[in-house]
Write a protein that binds this DNA or RNA. Structure first.
Lengths: 166, 166
DNA sequence: TGAGCTATGTATAATTT
DNA sequence: TAAATTATACATAGCTC
C-alpha cells in the first residue's frame, strides 16, 4: 500500500501495464468529460491499445468522427500551402488513372482496327487465290500497311512513352 | 485556499472557466503523454476551445493526423455494414480503375501479337509474290488465323464481358 | 490577464480478494 | 484475470501578485 513516485517509462511487466492502462484510460476519459462539461468545449480522444481490438474513444465513435472531421476541415483550410490532403490526393490519383484507362481503351480501339483488317485481308487472300488478283491485292496491302503504320506511329507519339501495367 | 468539491457543470464565469480550461488542458496533455509512454500505446486528443483559434492537440498536429487516419481505417473495416465513407469509396474506385487498366493493358499486349503478325505476314506477302509460294502461304495463314481466332476467343471469355471506358 | 502558491480532492500503484 | 481497497502521489480550485 505504499507507493513510490512512478517512473515515467514503458512498463515492462504485461499485467501491470495492462492494469495501469485500464485505470488511466478510465481516468483520462473522465477528465475529458469534465473539461468539456466545465468549459463547454468540444473534445475527443482516441487511444489504441494492444489490449483492446477496437480503439478506445471519447466521447463516442460518432462524437470522435464529428470532432475530427471538423479538425480535418480546419487543417485543410489552414494548410492550403502544405501538401494536398489525403482526399484530394486520392481524387487526383483517380483522375490520372481514369485518364490512363481512357488512353488504353482508345489505343485498343485503334489496334482492333488493324486486327479486323488482318482478318478481312487474310480471308480475302484465302478466297482469292487466282494469280490475276495478286497485283491488285499487293497494291491494297501496301496502302493498308502504310496507313496502319502511320496510325500506330501517331498513336505512340501521342502517348509520349509506353504505358506499363501498375 | 479552501476548496469545495467541484460541481460538475458549465462554469458560468468567463475568467474562471478560462483558468480551469488552461489548467485542465495541461493536465490532460500530461496524462496523454503518460499513458502512451507507460503503456506504449498510440493516442491522440483534440480539444476545441473558444479561447484558442487553433484546436489544441496532443501529441502534435501530425501525430493526430496519423492516429486518426488509422482510426478511420479501422472504422472502415468495422462498419462494413454501414455506408462506405468518402475515403474508402475513393480508394475502392481507384482499385477498380487500376484493375480495369491492367486488364486493358493485358488485352492490348495480346492484340499487339496479331498486329505484329499482320505486319510480318503482309511483309512476307509483299516480298514473296511468286505463284509457287501461294500454296505454302495459304497453309501458313490458315494455321495462323485459326490460332489468332482461338486466342481472341479465349481472351474474350477470360474477360467475361466487354470492358467499357468509364 | 497569467504565473505561483497551498489545501484539498482525485487518480492511481500496490496489494488483496 | 478483473474488481475492491487503501495509501500516497498528483491535479487543480481558489487565492495572491
Amino acid at each position: 500500500m505504499t507507493r513510490k513516485k512512478v517512473k515515467l517509462a514503458y512498463i515492462e511487466d504485461l499485467s501491470s501495464r495492462k492494469a495501469t492502462f485500464r485505470k488511466r484510460k478510465a481516468g483520462l476519459m473522465k477528465k475529458m468529460y469534465e473539461i468539456s462539461t466545465l468549459c463547454g468545449v468540444d473534445a475527443c480522444a482516441i487511444i489504441y491499445s494492444p489490449f483492446n481490438n477496437e480503439p478506445q474513444v471519447w466521447p463516442s465513435n460518432e462524437g470522435v468522427q464529428d470532432v475530427l472531421s471538423k479538425f480535418e476541415e480546419l487543417c485543410e483550410i489552414d494548410q492550403s500551402k502544405q501538401k494536398l490532403n489525403q482526399d484530394s490526393f486520392l481524387r487526383q490519383r483517380i483522375r490520372k488513372t481514369d485518364e490512363q484507362l481512357k488512353k488504353q481503351i482508345r489505343l485498343n480501339r485503334e489496334k482492333e482496327l488493324s486486327q479486323i483488317m488482318y482478318r478481312l485481308l487474310s480471308g480475302e487472300i484465302l478466297h482469292n487465290l487466282s494469280i490475276d488478283d495478286v497485283n491488285d491485292l499487293q497494291t491494297k496491302m501496301v496502302r493498308f500497311r502504310k496507313d496502319i503504320t502511320m496510325r500506330i506511329h501517331s498513336l505512340e507519339e501521342a502517348e509520349g512513352h509506353p504505358i506499363n501495367g501498375n
